[in-house]
Amino acid sequence: MKNIYLYDDSFSSLLNLINKLLELKIIPLDIKTKKDFTPTLLDEPITLELNKSFNIQSINVSKKIIKTVYYVYLSTDPKKELIIYYFLLNALKYQDKIFYMRTLKCVNSTLKLAKRISNECHKLKGFLRFKEMNNHVLYAEASPTNNVLELLSNHFAKRLKNEIWIIKDVGRNMYSIYYKPKYYIVSGQNINIQKFNISCDEENIEKLWLSFFKTIGIEARKNSRCQMNFMPKKYWPYIIEMERVYEKSNNG
């Protein structure tokens, strides 16, 4: 029998669980969300009685460590919960020195994953493309590998603070809706935004951008390989200047 500890998908519930496990000195074989857990004959799901008034700040580590762990939590790595467990276990002992202990396997994995998330978020801060709807709402779609919707929303809440905008994570069917001064993250099942139409000016602006994009490349320096390295193909379907190239390359 393999004991699997369950938590209910939120970051604070995961930390609450790990905190409890550390307290009880239990070394888990696996930790999973209730949603992801599929019962098998060999696995024994366990839900611990958790502290209801749990506060993330009660874990005795720095903000930097919590932030790193939060980034790992946003990743899609199937082992992320265990990685976080072992990282926190060591972080309690070594505190901020842990960032220099890459030779520990859990530290190396943690820092690598955290870096991957911040990289993807940084890329999307640039690659996200808004379209204006006929009611002046800005609307963008993306399909990030990792769950960076919240990090992106923080960025755009500062940048486009006087606008109303919606970002859709297509893969997860989640929406982030900003209405000054806050954004709300909601699941696609609960809302319907099909009714909006693209504003009539939109096509002209897109055309302007496409001409600019085409002009700014220097023919004598052409280097599609380099372009693709910096702007990976998986983002192309949502970048208007690459969309057409993408469709062309897919249709032969």
Partner: peptide
Amino acid sequence: ICHSFASDGRCIS
């Protein structure tokens, strides 16, 4: 932040 990359591989920000 780089927003796009032109056909010559240079960033457009």
